[in-house]
Design a protein around this nucleic acid. Structure first.
Length: 120
DNA sequence: GACATGACGTAAT
DNA sequence: TATTACGCCATGT
């Protein structure tokens, strides 16, 4: 784990994507990685976000969730407290969780128009 | 350069 | 549906 408080340069692309996620919408780690240009670096996104603890940042980290199936996402934070905080922050911006603690990507998934991701 | 670590993702069981 | 197993890849040692 990183002992440094200053995020490595390689993570800036991830942070840049996270910053663009609008209020009331969510994205998955894989999505962020994809939009950042590293399709298979979902794990690094989580790593990068975890490094934000205790730092002064303005990233909407709560809007990044883990995939739980084709059309649902949910907090992937191990610490239940952290996950609770994330959920509270999201609900405050209008994101609804179902009975199983999942969020519908259909309803709240972020769909960026202007960045990569072309149909075929 | 090899090896370990990890807020992940997907497929298999 | 829940667990396990494995692949990925940026960082730190």
């Amino acid at each position: 784990m990183p002992r440094s408080r200053t995020p490595p340069a390689g993570w800036s692309a991830f942070y840049r994507v996270v910053r663009r996620i609008p209020r009331g919408r969510i994205a998955t780690y894989g999505e962020v990685a994809l939009l950042a240009g590293s399709p298979r670096a979902a794990r690094q996104v989580g790593y990068a976000l975890a490094a934000l603890h205790g730092t002064r940042h303005r990233l909407p980290w709560q809007r990044v969730l883990g995939r739980r199936g084709p059309d649902h996402a949910a907090p992937s934070i191990l610490d239940p407290m952290g996950a609770g905080v994330q959920r509270a922050l999201l609900e405050r911006e209008g994101v609804a969780f179902d009975a199983r603690g999942r969020v519908s990507l259909e309803r709240f998934g972020w769909r960026p128009r202007r960045l990569r991701r072309r149909p075929a």
